[in-house]
């Protein structure tokens, strides 16, 4: 009897407490910036695709839901010809982002991805690629790499000396 009254009292008290239920979707819950939501492919500060199709995200993926094919432009810059993420398999673990050596693949705060058809959860490159730099502004892999690409000759990357003159005899 006493327990019943105690329960009623507690419930009464809770009616005066602050509500935790959020009226989604009218109101959105707070999502921290490092939330692991929908995956995007970002661009470097010069607007080029950051992804160099190294396949590290694909191999890091524990559910194997990333498939891509590399190709190259005329200047030798490598980029993905196709890049596909099957979000119906994705577990949003963020390993792909961790593995990415170029900050290309990033998990965002967007989690509103519900679909009625599973096929709609397959995102191709055009669905993934955004126009900005995402969470990591300023980084451009090709400025650091030694590879020669269009607009950057040998020796022009950061921390590089100009190309060696092999025929030079100076010490």
């Amino acid at each position: 009897m006493l327990a019943l009254l105690r329960a009623l009292w507690l419930i009464l008290l809770h009616t005066f407490k602050k509500r935790v239920t959020v009226q989604y979707p009218e109101r959105k819950a707070y999502v921290p910036p490092r939330w692991r939501g929908r995956i995007i492919l970002s661009r470097d500060p010069d607007g080029g695709e950051r992804c160099v199709a190294c396949c590290l995200c694909a191999v890091a993926c524990p559910v194997d839901c990333i498939a891509l094919q590399a190709t190259e432009d005329k200047t030798g810059r490598r980029y993905p010809e196709t890049f596909r993420i099957n979000f119906s398999r994705c577990i949003f673990c963020g390993y792909c982002e961790e593995a990415c050596p170029t900050y290309a693949i990033q998990l965002t705060t967007d989690y509103e991805m519900g679909e009625y058809r599973r096929a709609n959860l397959v995102y191709e490159k055009e669905d993934l690629l955004i126009s900005g730099q995402g969470k990591y502004p300023g980084y451009n892999f090709y400025r650091v790499a030694g590879l020669e690409i269009g607009g950057k000759a040998k020796g022009e990357a950061e921390n590089e000396r100009p190309p060696v003159d092999v025929r030079g005899l100076l010490p």
Binding site: D64, C65, L68, R84, N86, A119, V122
Partner: peptide
């Protein structure tokens, strides 16, 4: 054993 993309490589054709 590190073969990747098993669950995404065919999804352009069917789920």
């Amino acid at each position: 054993h590190r073969y990747s993309g098993r669950t995404a490589m065919h999804t352009n054709i069917g789920m």
